[in-house]
């Protein structure tokens, strides 16, 4: 694999998440009735980190869930589709809650569309909000994030790889140059 350019280092990721935690608390006037739902795979550890920060800030413990959206995707028929389903676990009834979806990279918006459909099957939240570590543009649906760690303009041919301690042993974000066979 071609070597990529490091966009965010561990410290940058830590600071961005801390700021997002502050913004979530500010926007929702405290931590009450917030449920963080991480989208599998890398949104899940990010949701846990945000929950820890919110707990440190506000002294409230925020429920954290994880959501696999494979069964809600609209690309079952596309070639790159991989059918492995990861765990979904929603610890509380989402009705009347402020649900904050957490994902690593916001790109076309299709994952978020699927995640919103999935969340609705668990109840009727008061609001659904979106927190992402990176917004790389190129939306194909009318979706925007409420909380963004960093906006990174990219070409569609480039790839962004996020590594996290929990899943990959290190915290960093890498921009991979256009792939020849992409």
């Amino acid at each position: 694999m071609a070597a990529g350019k490091v966009l965010l280092q561990a410290e940058d990721i830590r600071r961005a998440l801390l700021r997002i935690a502050h913004e979530i608390v500010e926007h929702n006037r405290g931590g009450k009735d917030i449920v963080l739902v991480g989208i599998q795979a890398r949104g899940a550890p990010l949701a846990w980190r945000l929950a820890k920060s919110i707990e440190a800030l506000e002294g409230v413990s925020v429920p954290v869930g994880r959501l696999d959206i494979t069964l809600y995707r609209d690309d079952l028929e596309r070639e790159h589709f991989r059918p492995n389903i990861r765990e979904t676990q929603i610890p509380v009834d989402l009705s009347e809650k402020h649900v904050v979806l957490v994902d690593d990279v916001l790109y076309t918006g299709r994952t978020i569309r699927a995640a919103m459909d999935a969340v609705m099957d668990f109840g009727r939240p008061r609001t659904i909000q979106l927190a992402v570590l990176i917004d790389r543009g190129h939306r194909e649906l009318p979706i925007r994030a409420d909380y963004v760690g960093k906006n990174i303009p990219t070409s569609r041919l480039e790839e962004i790889e996020l590594h996290l301690l929990e899943t990959d042993g290190t915290d960093e974000t890498i921009l991979l140059p256009p792939q020849e066979d992409a």
């Binding site: 069964l71 809600y72 079952l76 990861r86 979904t88 676990q89 459909d117 999935a118 099957d121 668990f122």
Partner: peptide, 15 residues
Amino acid sequence: AMAEILSRPIRRVPT
């Protein structure tokens, strides 16, 4: 994963 869906309030996915 499918058994988890059966435990939800709405036991249906659009797949």
